[in-house]
Nucleic acid binder design. Sequence first.
DNA 1: ATAATTGCTCAAGTTAAGTTGAGGTCAAGA
DNA 2: TCTTGACCTCAACTTAACTTGAGCAATTAT
Lengths: 168, 168
Amino acid sequence: MKKPVRAGDLTIGDLADRTGLSVSAIRFYEEKGLVHPTRNPGGQRRFMRADIRRLSFVLVAQEFGFSIAEIAEQLKLLPDGRAPTKADWTRISGQFRSHLDKRIDRMKALRDKLDACIGCGCLSLKSCRLYNAGDAAARHGRGPRYLLGDQPDHIGADEDESGNRTDA
Amino acid sequence: MKKPVRAGDLTIGDLADRTGLSVSAIRFYEEKGLVHPTRNPGGQRRFMRADIRRLSFVLVAQEFGFSIAEIAEQLKLLPDGRAPTKADWTRISGQFRSHLDKRIDRMKALRDKLDACIGCGCLSLKSCRLYNAGDAAARHGRGPRYLLGDQPDHIGADEDESGNRTDA
DNA sequence: ATAATTGCTCAAGTTAAGTTGAGGTCAAGA
DNA sequence: TCTTGACCTCAACTTAACTTGAGCAATTAT
């Protein structure tokens, strides 16, 4: 039977089994500063049991839409290698909650605009509310990126755009 | 003053100005099959005015979370080069709506689970509802990817994971 | 006529979050 | 001891949605 040399220490494979993560993902997370395993004399990684929780936290945080970099920030606030405790979780979960609320609000606003627009079929650059549906934040990460500002300043300045037959 | 050779035809720069997209993005979109400009004798792209609407549609669809590939599918259903008409829009906007509703529902479910979990601070792999918060669909594109299934089958099969002090 | 724009093609770079593979080492059980 | 199976490093590949740059050609303005 397979027992870790020092009870309480886990190999990377053990940790992978316990968290459902792949071994390569765990190595990657270490590189990103999410975990800080020690090394055994042979140079292999040895994790603490608390790292199960730490990585579990990473998974949950990702579900809430945080990037690895953001999660790393959160975890940096914890004493070295410690997993989030109940007090940490209370603080952090509040942030999750507001993050999520914001996302939901954005989606709802978008839905409202869509509803207001379903009947019209205009999609007009000058008048359609959908073109300004996403606030700047929603633009990040998807869709065309303007390196300077998020929106070019001439949107809304078009006069007309006919040219398609309305054959319906 | 700058006038297109044939009225109604737009250069790529004109189209960029009218849509707020970059020239490179428009070329990229052509490559992806979203627009099909003709070429003038000199080999330069010439767009129809309807392409303004087509690209506007692309921007809106992206806002609703559709990928370029999915948008290309939608646009393929339209007669060549035609912009979406009111009838098209009515059909498509219904799809947007349900797409969006699904996303909102997912996030609300996540929020409910978070609320149920804010007090406990467990983050236990075996009991915390947050670990199964995201349905399989939510896993696509972000977070660790399991090439075979979306979830390894041993999640939920862990016995204990103590090892962190609860110093709060 | 000529200079300044604008456009063209292709190849390569960017970011996020990992995966895959090569080539080699460590550890554990028979 | 020896042979697997687990680990190690490092580099390169993956996808999406574009951007950037190089080296040239076509337009347009003066």
